[in-house]
Structures are given as structure tokens and as C-alpha cells.
Design a protein around this nucleic acid. Structure first.
Length: 493
RNA sequence: GCCCCCAUCGUCUAGUGGCCCAGGACGAAGCCCUCUCAAGGCUUAAACCGGGAUUCGAAUUCCCGUGGGGGCACCA
């Protein structure tokens, strides 16, 4: 079976932060293109000047690169189908609007916005569905031409058939049939000369030879319109694939500002730019979002290469998916365990530096095996390994007192441990652990009581990587110094 | 209000008429391992929205409800 190379595109608007939904569609686009030996394209849909926000475009570039979804063509990489920013393609859309006017599929409309608003209100009052009333649809072509020549402001509207139905075919959902009278004479070209999405996307997808259009299900409503526009041009349709939207964790409705803020409070985000800062990996984020809307039978932990191997648009699902951040944790943690030690060390380093720690590369490499399976996010390395890079640890005195014992008894344990450990030639764990275990045996105390005191003394925390392996890396001198310090604290209680 | 889409464990999903008293994963519970915390191993609970129809046989096809989602801009 031969597969034709697919050309896919992600076409975000630079109107806000790049979010998870965009990342997921981009992933599927990327997988489909790469799997078939085709191209993945980035196109910026910036035709709404009022909503464009500075920096949003750069955030998209950065987000896609961070995810590893490098596009073959785009505003900042070029390509032979450019420009890839819609505001730079204004003339192309105007020419195409003209084609539609000339072949009777569209018409200039001179209606002023305030009149349109009034019409809409009247229709609402009569409980009719809001729609353009068709005033300019019946204008004689020569009169329209005259008014344009006179410099009157106008838009171009699509001449939607009044009768019959439109059948549009979605690859996942099959035929979608809608009565044409439900559709409006939508504006294709705005009075500022820029196109609306409806014209711009259709023209660009054709001009850029896009074979598969993957987009959100919010486009399903105007899908038949888009199909009609393609047909009015006499073009072949791409394969249409409408993915469903993400729902908020409760499953009730899509992510709102409130939900987004709530997620942030829990250390999660739906904005790609936040992911790195929160300690998530591209691998984890990709794997997680891939599986919301794509079913794989088993073994769902996948690298991008493995996803590439298994991906098929036929495996995509049309039903809405609730965001589940616990799964993000799972995939992120799992991928962290898959990284090589040197790779992981390199990824951890920035977080340690961000914390103001002096990172010793050799030590970092040595602690990787100790902390790796404890990390859910990359920045967890601070909690599990920050003490390796500090000269002194600060600790809560009460943590030094073992359960069931008092300060005096705890101090005694610390002194005895100091004695045992200071007698050692080296602090390697193979040498340190047996005598300490022997001490536990002879003391009649609980192992947790004794090791717990030393753990807090040496690491400054009640939870840490394995004690003796940690002490080996910290080194004898520093360990003894910290225990001595702990004894001092205990004696003062 | 009108239109469109969707519907399997709490969540993401497998399942394309018999292999399903429905499989996997996250999460939950229990046990094992264990110096804390993890990781790992084993085990358990947990679903085909309801009703009709087609069929020898339906989670799987069709219809009707119900529920959920999306849309109805000179926004995308």
C-alpha cells in the first residue's frame, strides 16, 4: 500500500498564549506529515488586527520548537508557498474574492454595521434566527461596481444557496448534512480589505496544497460553508478531520479562565510556555496530549518516534476529552525515567541553577540514579537533591527528634552514629551501612528512628533519597560536620 | 430558540455483529519489597446512558429519547 505524502498545517491565531489544544493538533499534523514523508507547515492567521497580541507569534514559534515539532515551512523558516502570515497575503485573498464575485458565488455588500445590528435585533425580537437579510445580494452588478468606484466601503459576502442541502464529509464523523437555509451569507472579505477565516483558510489551504485539514470541532458549524467555498472555486477538497475540544477536568464544559487559574495553583497549566517552568518535559506533554483523542490499544508510553510508528488518522476519536492532569504527571515521570543519565542531568541543571544552587556536574551525574524514579517533574530535583549542592543544610529542630523519643535520646543516637561513621575510612555506602545497621540491632530501637535522625541531620529533610548512597556523595567530612551540627541543636532543646 | 457534533469503568481509551459475564492506562484500595519517599511486582473494586427495532446473535447497525459539547460576528 503506497501512502501519498501529506501536507498538513497548524494555523493558530496570535491572539493569546499558545495552549494545549494547539499543541495536540500540531502533534497530529506533524505525525501525519512525517509518517507519510510529507511536510508540516506553520501558518499564522493574524487577520484580526484588533485581537493580535504582541509576542504571541513568537510564543507559537518557541512552543512548537520546545515540543520538538519543527515545521518545514513557516514565517520564520520560509518555504516556497509563502508568505506564511496571512496579513502578508492580502492581495491573494482580494484576487480570490474577485474570482468568486465574477463567477456569481459572492457579492459586494455595502450594508453598514449599525444597520446590520438593527436587523439582527429585529430578527431576535421576532424570534427568528439571526441572518443577513440579503439586501445587497440582489444588487445589480453594474450598480455595485459604481458604488465601489465611488469609494463606498464594502465587504464581500458568500452567496449561500437558499435551497437544498450541503453534504460535507469529515474523515472521523462521516457525512454531515445541513440545510443550506441554515447557513448565512457570511462575510469573506472585511471592509478593511482583510479576509475572514472562511476565505483565508480555504484559499491558503488550497494554495499551500494542504492535503489534510486537522482542526477543532468548533469549526464544525461552518464546515459546510467551507466546503461550499471550495466548490465555488472548483477546487478539490482536502481531507477534513475535526478533532474535539478539551473539556475541563470535571468534564463539564471547556477550560475557562477560572479553571486555568485553578490548574496553575496546583502546579499545572494548559499553556505551553508554562510547561517547562513547571518542570514538565516535551516528551511527557506530547505523550499526554496525544492520548486525549487518540486511542492506542496498549503500551501507551511512547516517545515521538514510537508515536510516529503507530500513528494513523483512523485512530483519532471524535468525542470530547476531559483534561486529566494526574495523567500528565504519570507520563512526565515515566519519560524522566527513560532519559539517559547525561540527558537527565542536562535537563535538571537549569532548575538547580534557578534555585541558586552551585551545580557540580560530577555530583549531579552521581545523584541521578538516586533521584530519578522519585521525580514527577524536573523541578522535583530541588526537593530530592537540593541538599547535595548546599554547604550547610537548614533544618527544623523538631524533625531531629525521632518518633517515640525525646531530644536527649535523639542526641545520644546522633552522637553514637557520629562515633561509628567518623571511625570509617571512607563514607561509601557499602562501608557505612553495615556498622550502622549493627548499631540499630544492638540498640533495640527502630531502624526508622535512628536512620531518620541521621537523614534529617545530613539532608535537612525527612524525605530523601536512600541515606547511605546520599552520604557517600556528600562525602565524609560534610556528613560528619552536619551530624555534629545536629547534635548541637539537639543539646540545646 | 435554531443548527451541528458526541455518548464504554471517576478519567483517557480498546472494541468495526459471535473471540466480551468487555481489554489496557491514569487514579483508588490491598498485599509484597523497603532506612524515609518513590520506583517495581502481585491483587481488587470500577463501565457498554435509557427505550425500541433489525438479527439466530448487538457495546458494535437503525430509530426515538436523555445527557454532554460546540456553533449561530466585518473573531478565529
Amino acid at each position: 500500500m503506497s501512502i501519498k505524502p501529506a501536507r498538513t498545517r497548524i494555523a493558530p491565531s496570535p491572539t493569546g498564549h499558545m495552549h494545549l489544544g494547539t499543541a495536540r493538533v500540531a502533534l497530529y499534523d506533524y505525525l501525519l506529515a512525517k509518517k507519510t514523508g510529507g511536510q508540516f507547515i506553520l501558518r499564522i492567521e493574524d487577520t484580526d488586527l484588533k485581537r493580535t497580541v504582541p509576542g504571541a507569534e513568537q510564543e507559537i514559534f518557541d512552543g512548537l520548537r520546545w515540543l520538538g515539532l519543527q515545521y518545514d515551512e513557516g514565517p520564520d523558516v520560509g518555504g516556497k508557498f509563502g508568505p506564511y502570515r496571512q496579513t502578508e497575503r492580502r492581495e491573494i485573498y482580494q484576487q480570490h474574492a474577485k474570482i468568486l464575485i465574477n463567477n456569481g458565488s459572492a457579492y459586494p455588500c455595502f450594508c453598514a454595521p449599525d444597520r446590520l445590528e438593527k436587523v439582527k435585533q429585529e430578527q431576535n425580537a421576532r424570534k427568528e434566527n439571526p441572518h443577513y437579510d440579503g439586501t445587497c445580494r440582489v444588487l445589480a452588478p453594474d450598480e455595485a461596481a459604481r458604488r465601489i468606484a465611488n469609494g463606498e466601503a464594502y465587504t464581500v459576502r458568500f452567496k449561500m444557496p437558499h435551497d437544498g442541502v450541503t453534504v460535507a464529509h469529515d474523515h472521523l464523523r462521516g457525512d454531515i448534512t445541513i440545510e443550506n437555509k441554515q447557513l448565512n451569507d457570511y462575510v469573506l472579505l472585511k471592509s478593511d480589505g482583510l479576509p475572514t477565516y472562511h476565505l483565508a483558510a480555504i484559499v491558503d489551504d488550497h494554495e499551500m496544497q494542504i492535503t489534510h485539514v486537522l482542526r477543532g470541532s468548533e469549526w464544525l458549524g461552518t464546515f459546510p460553508l467551507h466546503v461550499n467555498i471550495v466548490r465555488a472555486f472548483g477546487w478539490d477538497e482536502p481531507i477534513w478531520i475535526h478533532l474535539s475540544v478539551f473539556l475541563k477536568p470535571s468534564g463539564k464544559g471547556k477550560m475557562s479562565k477560572r479553571e486555568t487559574a485553578a490548574a496553575m495553583k496546583d502546579g499545572y497549566s494548559i499553556f505551553i510556555k508554562d510547561m517547562e517552568e513547571l518542570g514538565f518535559t516535551p516528551e511527557g506533554v506530547l505523550n499526554w496530549s496525544a492520548l486525549m483523542g487518540w486511542g492506542v490499544a496498549e503500551d501507551d508510553v511512547m516517545t515521538t518516534a514510537q508515536m510516529l510508528d503507530r500513528f494513523s488518522v483512523d485512530g483519532l476519536t471524535p468525542s470530547p476529552a476531559a483534561i486529566n492532569f494526574q495523567r500528565l504527571d504519570h507520563f512526565n515521570a515515566t519519560h524522566i525515567r527513560l532519559f539517559t543519565a547525561t540527558d537527565l542531568a542536562a535537563r535538571l541543571k537549569p532548575y538547580l541553577i534557578r534555585e541558586g544552587l552551585n551545580v557540580d556536574e560530577d555530583a549531579l551525574l552521581k545523584i541521578i540514579p538516586l533521584i530519578r524514579e522519585r521525580l514527577v517533574t524536573l523541578d522535583d530535583c530541588i526537593a530530592f537533591g537540593g541538599f547535595f549542592f548546599k554547604d550547610e543544610v537548614t533544618l527544623a529542630p523538631e524533625d531531629l527528634i525521632a518518633k517515640g523519643l525525646d531530644a536527649k535520646q535523639s542526641a545520644e543516637i546522633a552522637r553514637k552514629s557520629y562515633e561509628i561513621l567518623s571511625a570509617l575510612a571512607s563514607m561509601d555506602h557499602a562501608s557505612a551501612e553495615p556498622p550502622m545497621r549493627a548499631y540499630v540491632e544492638s540498640s533495640g530501637l527502630n531502624i526508622n528512628q535512628i536512620f531518620g535522625i541521621i537523614r534529617v541531620a545530613v539532608t535537612g529533610q525527612k524525605v530523601s533519597p536512600p541515606l547511605f548512597e546520599s552520604m557517600e556523595i556528600i562525602g565524609k567530612e560534610k556528613c560528619l560536620q552536619r551530624i555534629k551540627n545536629a547534635i548541637g541543636i539537639l543539646e540545646k532543646i
